[in-house]
Simulated assay, not measured.
Amino acid sequence: MNPTAVLHAGFGVSVLIGILVSDTALRVGAFALGAVLFVAGIVVSRRDDGGEAA
């Protein structure tokens, strides 16, 4: 499976968990994890392109 898709799916799950939990600390942690996974998915996607930076 594509690592970018896995990271972005993890983002979706993390945000969903953040919406469903009621504890503030867990909610913030889930949203922060989601942000990290989303950015990691973008970074992995850019590295896989194989293009040269301008």
Score class of each variant (00 low, 15 high):
N2A: 03
N2Q: 08
P3G: 02
P3N: 04
P3Q: 05
P3V: 07
T4R: 10
A5F: 14
A5V: 11
V6K: 09
L7S: 07
L7N: 08
L7Y: 11
H8C: 11
H8E: 14
A9S: 11
A9M: 11
A9P: 02
A9E: 13
G10C: 13
G10M: 15
F11S: 04
F11K: 03
F11N: 09
S14H: 03
I17S: 03
I17V: 10
I17N: 02
G18E: 04
I19T: 12
I19N: 07
L20P: 00
L20H: 06
L20T: 08
L20G: 11
S22N: 10
S22M: 08
D23N: 07
T24Q: 13
T24H: 10
T24M: 14
A25N: 07
R27N: 09
V28G: 01
G29S: 06
G29A: 12
F31H: 12
F31W: 14
A32Y: 09
L33I: 12
L33P: 01
G34D: 11
G34S: 15
A35N: 12
A35K: 11
V36T: 14
V36K: 05
L37N: 01
F38E: 02
F38Q: 09
V39A: 13
V39G: 05
A40T: 01
G41D: 01
V43P: 00
V43H: 01
V44D: 04
S45E: 02
S45N: 08
R46H: 06
R46L: 06
R46Y: 05
R47S: 03
D48M: 06
D48P: 00
D48Y: 00
D49P: 02
G50T: 04
G50C: 09
A54Y: 11
